[in-house]
């Protein structure tokens, strides 16, 4: 059952690096992360890689396998032909720290910018009542394990560092949608999504949805509905008239 795989792993740091060839044993049922661990234990003890749960639940071991953003713990080795060289590179949208580890602080900065859940002022703990159908929409988005693969693949920032300040990325636009759809959140988040987090820059190519390991329909269920809510508000004739009369911009 065992065979030797040909791995090409990116090694280097912020200064630069290269793909390094390794031959590593593979056993039945193994995933890419198993092979990386074997590589560490036998050939490259200082190979830098992030991982935690090895069960697809924490979203730490994000990388690009043959150029495709993936969780290494959920990528089975039997999806590749036995002799085929497999390249493993760090996420491209973020600055490299070392080997497969990147600086993902962009995401934490964006997370801090999204205004928090705003609880209804008149409800005490224990008094919240929400129906299952109403929480289900936001629950889908809360399945997010923050692997940041959607952020990595999104072409608005993937090769456009200059867009990062104005664009929160699919993960955090989805977070805004999640709060907007929360049955008890007291804030209106539509203008914010458009003006402060760059929702308009998304042109719904669904790349984020395709790479999501949690199979969240980011584009269809979060981004498009959010765009529709923004548009409803912006082009609603009554809202438009109100804003003219009351001189709100």
């Amino acid at each position: 059952m065992s065979y030797d795989a040909h791995l090409r792993v990116w090694r280097g740091d912020a200064e630069g690096g290269e793909l390094v060839d390794f031959t590593v044993e593979v056993n039945e049922g193994e995933v890419v992360l198993d092979i990386i661990h074997r590589l560490q234990a036998t050939q490259a003890p200082d190979l830098a890689v992030r991982w935690n749960c090895k069960a697809g639940k924490c979203g730490s071991c994000s990388a690009e396998v043959n150029g495709r953003p993936r969780l290494m713990c959920m990528t089975r080795m039997n999806t590749f032909a036995a002799g085929e060289p497999i390249s493993i590179t760090p996420m491209r949208a973020f600055p490299v720290i070392r080997d497969l580890v990147t600086d993902v602080s962009f995401n934490y900065t964006k997370a801090r910018a999204v205004p928090a859940f705003s609880p209804p002022p008149d409800l005490a703990p224990g008094e919240y009542r929400m129906s299952q159908v109403d929480v289900e929409r936001s629950q889908e988005f809360r399945k997010c394990i923050e692997c940041f693969l959607c952020q990595d693949t999104c072409h608005v920032v993937r090769d456009h560092e200059e867009n990062k300040p104005a664009f929160a990325g699919p993960r955090f636009l989805m977070r805004i949608a999640e709060l907007d759809m929360h049955p008890l959140d007291a804030l209106d988040r539509k203008r914010q999504a458009q003006d402060d987090f760059g929702l308009g820059m998304c042109n719904i190519t669904k790349c984020c949805t395709e790479v999501c390991p949690e199979h969240i329909k980011i584009t269809d269920n979060a981004l498009i509905p959010m765009k529709e809510r923004v548009v409803d508000r912006k082009y609603d004739p009554l809202v438009w008239l109100g804003s003219k009369i009351l001189r709100r911009s």
Binding site: F117, P119, P125, Y128, Q132, V135, R142, H182, D185
Partner: peptide
């Protein structure tokens, strides 16, 4: 009390 408090932080439990 600790669970109910999570709802005020934004948690969405099944209903």
């Amino acid at each position: 009390q600790r669970v109910w408090e999570l709802e005020t932080y934004g948690a969405l439990f099944d209903r």
